[in-house]
Amino acid sequence: MSSTAIHVTDIEAAINWWRERAPSPDGISAAPEVQALAEAYALLALSRATEVEADTLKPQALDAWMTWYATTPDSPCIAICSTAQGDAVCKGCGRSFDEVQHWPALDPFEKRVVWHRILQEGTAWRFNRYAERVTR
């Protein structure tokens, strides 16, 4: 995944968030944000791709995605940081030492790349024994 790519699961999550926020008044039509994101989703499906470059999205789709993104947790941290103890990868959140150190400087797309990776790996303590600390 490139650093400015948006994964299909994020497009899906944004569509569902917008559908809940702005439900169809008639069961047929969709909010403009849903329509914009659905177009990007359809293009991904047609090309059998799993990600889209953010700069190829139409402005309305990117704005809708950024609005959804602003509602997501910023950091995967669960306040158990083993990188402070010398681990290359944090046992608590699954981020590398560099990712933990540079997190504030990462843009939303870079952060979502990391989030996607740690969700796929599912090995960090945030996903098992300390899952009660997580609000996703």
Rank of each mutant, 00 (worst) to 15 (best):
S2F: 02
S3T: 15
S3G: 10
A5D: 11
I6E: 02
I6W: 04
H7K: 11
T9K: 12
D10G: 12
D10Q: 15
I11N: 00
A13Y: 01
I15V: 11
I15L: 04
N16H: 10
W17M: 08
R19L: 08
E20Y: 00
P25F: 00
G27M: 05
I28H: 09
S29L: 08
A31D: 07
A31N: 08
A40S: 14
A49K: 14
T50S: 13
T50R: 14
E51P: 00
D55W: 12
K58L: 14
P59D: 13
Q60A: 09
A61K: 00
W65F: 14
T67E: 15
W68V: 08
Y69W: 01
Y69S: 08
A70G: 15
T71H: 11
T72H: 11
P73Q: 13
P73A: 13
S75P: 01
I78W: 03
A79D: 14
I80V: 14
T83M: 03
T83H: 02
K91S: 12
G94H: 06
S96L: 07
F97W: 11
E99H: 08
E99Y: 01
H102N: 10
L106K: 13
D107F: 09
P108H: 04
P108V: 05
R112N: 10
H116E: 09
L119W: 11
R129Y: 07
R129P: 00
E132M: 06
R133K: 12
